[in-house]
Amino acid sequence: MAVTQYIHPLDKHLRLERIPTLYCPGCGLGIGLASMLRALDSRIKEGSIDPDKVFWVGGIGCSARMVFYVNYDSAHVIHGRAIPFAIGAVLANPELKAIVVGGDGDIAGIGGNHLLHAARRNVDLIVVMFTNFVYAMTGGQVAPTTPRGVKTTTTPRGNPEYPMNAVKLVTSLNANYVARASITTPHYIEQYFYKALGKKGFRFIEVVSACPEVYGRHIGLRNPVEMYNELKKRVKHKPKASIEEAEIDWDKGIVTGEFVDRDNPSYIEILRGEQSEI
């Protein structure tokens, strides 16, 4: 039966005709999206964001598919290229609030080059990267964030590579805001995304998510509750953590918190300054 009336406070932010989502039972992405929508809802209610100017962009993957479900201008583009697509849109219309969503494969793997240059430019967009340690949509291949030793469908003898710490990568550049949260602490996702929505320049939030269906199968945590609890055990929230402490390690712990929060001139502000001199 089609949903014809709002029955959830966030329903107005969703394209209800596209619900239910394709996400597997136990997937962490719903928690992440709901947290982001609560923050967006607050921003819209307080009048600091015009919903007509909100623009969601996603590449390819489970996380990028969030753009299917949000009731805003949205683009579902090609794998890894959500960031340059969003850059073009915001430079053409600086009033747009561009929100890029994607998994670690989309954002930091195939799209890694765009990620670091967007951060270097401090270009005006928010990137929310969902890290679930695996390529889930394609069936469980190794990802840039997969811990060493984990057996995936393409590393049957265990992952020989070191995983990427995207927070450390982005903090080494010129981003105005870098934070990490976990789906086990949705209030921090909401809080960080709310903050990011109020800032200019490049804003990066890594959301550590749980994928019991695909990643859970690889590491013996197929049960969503177990997976969630195991992730929760590993998450260490440090409100004032240094960048050096920003570990993301399945064995040693996952540090969440805000790592960069500053107001350097954004790319658009700098361009506008130059324009006014012409």
Binding site: V57, A75, V77, I78, R81, P84, F85, A86, I87, G88, A89, V90, L91, A92, N93, L96
Partner: peptide, 11 residues
Amino acid sequence: NAIIGASWAGF
């Protein structure tokens, strides 16, 4: 990809 995004924003 940037020019495709810019075109959708009206440029």
